[in-house]
Structures are given as C-alpha cells and as structure tokens.
Simulated assay, not measured.
Amino acid sequence: MNAHSHTAHDPSCIFCKIVAKQIPSKTVYEDEQVYAFHDINPWAPVHFLLIPKAHIPSMAQAGDHAALLGHMMALVPKLALEQGCNPYPEGGYRVVTNTGAEGGQEVHHLHFHVMGGPRPWARG
C-alpha cells in the first residue's frame, strides 16, 4: 500500500469520525476492515453504506486494495438479504459508488451505497 493511497484515519472526514464512533450511526455490520451503516437519507426501502475503515478517498485510489474491495463486494449479497432485500432474481439491489466531482461524490472516503427493496424508489 502506497502512503498516498490511504491513511488510517482522516480527522476531518465524516466517515472516519463514524468509524471512530465520534458520530453516531446505526450499524449494519462491522469487522476489522469494514463498517456498514444505514444511510441517514435513504433513497430506497433498504439503503446502507459499506465503507473501508481505512481512509481511501475514492475508487480512484482503490487500485492497491483488490483484496479489500473483494471482501466488501462479497459481503454485499449477505448484508442486502439480512437488511430486507428480496432474493435474486426477482428481488435484488443496486451497488453504487460515486467517484470525484463529475461522478457526484460528496464524501471523499470510499463508500458503496447498497439500495434495494420493492420498487419504485424516489431515485434510481
């Protein structure tokens, strides 16, 4: 891992503060590498965020973190079902990550939105 690709914690980052329990959140899942929590402004009946505990700013810096990304993606189906998404193929969910200003990224800490549940949704 390159020093420029992530730091363990960014004291000014809201998601780092959530990981550090300095800002409350409703936990979905937690292990040594990742934290998942409910979105405070859900777009769908099921909407949670899955983030690495390490401060990786975006997908643009994720190239050195293939194992971590694989771990995160492998958790999505399990967590989506636990949170109330209906099973594939009739049910399902979306996994969305915004990268950079043109990608609509607002918090510069890598995060995956997992959204699902009965449609239609307000967005999506």
Rank of each mutant, 00 (worst) to 15 (best):
M1R: 08
M1S: 13
M1W: 08
N2P: 15
N2W: 12
N2A: 14
A3M: 11
H4Q: 14
H4K: 14
S5P: 09
S5K: 08
H6S: 13
H6R: 08
T7Q: 10
A8D: 12
A8P: 08
H9Y: 15
H9F: 15
D10Q: 15
D10F: 08
D10I: 09
C13P: 07
F15D: 04
C16R: 01
K17D: 06
K17G: 05
I18L: 06
V19E: 04
K21T: 13
Q22S: 10
Q22H: 12
Q22P: 08
I23T: 11
I23K: 11
I23G: 05
P24W: 10
P24F: 09
T27C: 09
T27Y: 01
V28H: 08
V28F: 07
V28C: 05
Y29W: 13
E30S: 14
E30R: 09
D31E: 09
Q33W: 05
Q33Y: 06
Q33S: 12
Y35I: 14
Y35K: 15
F37L: 02
F37H: 02
F37W: 02
F37A: 02
H38S: 03
H38R: 09
D39T: 01
D39W: 00
I40C: 05
I40N: 03
I40K: 08
N41L: 06
N41Q: 04
W43N: 11
A44K: 00
A44W: 00
V46G: 08
V46T: 12
H47M: 01
F48Y: 11
L49R: 02
I51Q: 10
I51G: 07
P52D: 05
A54C: 08
A54R: 13
H55W: 10
H55E: 10
I56N: 02
I56T: 03
Q61D: 13
H65A: 14
A66G: 14
A67K: 14
L68G: 06
L68K: 04
M72Q: 03
M73I: 13
A74G: 04
L75E: 02
V76D: 06
V76M: 07
V76F: 04
K78N: 12
K78T: 14
L79S: 11
A80K: 02
L81D: 07
C85V: 00
N86I: 00
P87W: 09
Y88V: 08
P89A: 14
P89G: 11
G91N: 02
G91V: 01
Y93Q: 00
V95S: 02
V96L: 13
T97W: 04
N98D: 10
T99G: 10
G100N: 15
A101G: 10
E102H: 11
G104D: 04
Q105T: 06
E106A: 09
V107G: 11
V107H: 09
V107M: 12
V107Q: 05
F112G: 01
F112E: 02
H113V: 06
H113M: 05
V114Y: 00
V114Q: 00
M115T: 03
M115I: 13
G116N: 04
G117S: 06
G117T: 00
G117E: 04
G117R: 02
P118D: 15
P118V: 05
P118I: 06
R119I: 10
R119V: 13
P120V: 01
W121N: 12
W121P: 10
A122W: 03
A122G: 09
